[in-house]
């Protein structure tokens, strides 16, 4: 890409002062050249990422959007079997899949639970992360040790953590119930009762998410100038007032970002649900993503169009969320 810039730089000089809007072709061309000459290094730097994302995410995403407008299943898409080629026979059905999805009680049930799950996980994770970060931000003996230990859940590969929780939760042989039974309390059906299972999966996801939250917020706390607190203390502000009026506003930039990311990640948190309960018992913990996965991989013929539809809906929901989230922030004077 850098090759193009040599000549265009040579030809461009002098014109930089005339940034005319909407000019004939020649001028537009030189506009392109000028853009190249000013921006070529920026574009070069982002090019690898853009290209990889365009191919690896863009293509499947585009295809997903297209499939969501058709009735494609495994049985009617194009296939190549050895030397034989079976052409696609699926048909364009417009928005029918979307109409079906929103009319489907299963979809609505999953949507409600996915939202409950996301809100619960993010709010609990944030609160715990903030509480721990505040504690760690004080001068406390062994701070380094605590900080390292508390980040352990983040350092361990997710599926190993989920396995270890599965092992602890096991109703008959898990440690949690053995301790409870040993203490004379009835065994808790951690993953076998619909309501308790919901709480259990939320607990695991919170456990997994707190370290990230805590570390980010701890950094945020450390970036708040200490003299603000001193001044407030002089004015006789209580600990709560200081927290409310200095800490929370000071954390806003960090908070907005981590809450946004955390919401997106939790909404699509496939591994925790899938590896812990597979959506069970029954379908009590099934979120939109695991259900969409089920349609692609468990049903036969695989229902590509419906699962793509759900995927696109998930994307749209999150986009709308991100959009309004940003709008609200902007109104409140945040620059993002």
């Amino acid at each position: 890409m850098a090759v193009h810039t040599g000549p265009s730089v040579a030809k461009a000089p002098g014109k930089a002062t005339v940034p005319g809007p909407r000019r004939p072709a020649r001028t537009r061309e030189s506009g392109v050249r000028r853009a190249l000459s000013t921006h070529w290094y920026a574009w070069t730097m982002v090019a690898p990422v853009v290209i990889v994302l365009a191919i690896i995410v863009g293509y499947p995403l585009g295809r997903g959007i297209w499939l969501s407008l058709t009735d494609a299943t495994e049985a009617n898409v194009e296939r190549t079997i050895g030397v034989n080629h079976i052409p696609a026979t699926y048909e364009f059905t417009g928005l029918q899949n979307y109409v079906d999805a929103f009319g489907d009680p299963v979809f609505l049930q999953r949507l409600v639970w996915t939202i409950v799950w996301t809100v619960a996980c993010v709010s609990i994770t944030y609160s715990l992360g903030l509480a721990l970060a505040t504690l760690l931000n004080r001068q406390v003996a062994g701070r380094g040790f605590y900080r390292m230990a508390l980040v352990v859940p983040w350092a361990i590969p997710g599926f190993v953590s989920v396995f270890s929780w599965n092992f602890l939760y096991n109703e008959k042989h898990g440690l949690l119930n053995k301790i409870l039974v040993g203490g004379g309390i009835d065994a808790v059906p951690w993953l076998n009762d619909p309501t308790i299972a919901k709480l259990s999966v939320i607990a695991v996801n919170v456990w997994l998410g707190v370290p990230f939250m805590m570390v980010a917020l701890l950094g945020g706390l450390q970036s708040i100038p200490g003299d603000l607190y001193e001044a407030a203390e002089m004015d006789g502000a209580s600990a709560w007032q200081r927290f409310r009026h200095i800490t929370l506003p000071g954390l806003r930039p960090v908070s907005t970002t981590v809450i946004l990311l955390s919401t997106i990640w939790t909404f699509n948190m496939f591994p925790v649900i899938f590896l812990l309960t597979r959506g069970g018992p029954g379908d009590a913990t099934e979120i939109l993503v695991t259900q969409a996965f089920r349609m692609t991989f468990v049903d036969s013929p695989r229902n590509f169009s419906t699962s793509a539809t759900w995927g696109v809906i998930i994307l749209l929901l999150l986009l709308v969320f991100a959009f309004f989230y940003r709008r609200v922030l902007k109104k409140q004077g945040e620059v993002w």
């Binding site: 619909p194 069970g280 018992p281 089920r294 036969s300």
Partner: peptide
């Protein structure tokens, strides 16, 4: 039938629901 394998998933969901008192 080709769908024979897929018959299990919905049945399994409901079977578990019956056993856990959800249905």
């Amino acid at each position: 039938v080709p769908e024979g394998g897929s018959l299990f998933a919905p049945l399994q969901t409901q079977y578990t629901k019956v056993l856990t008192g959800q249905a």
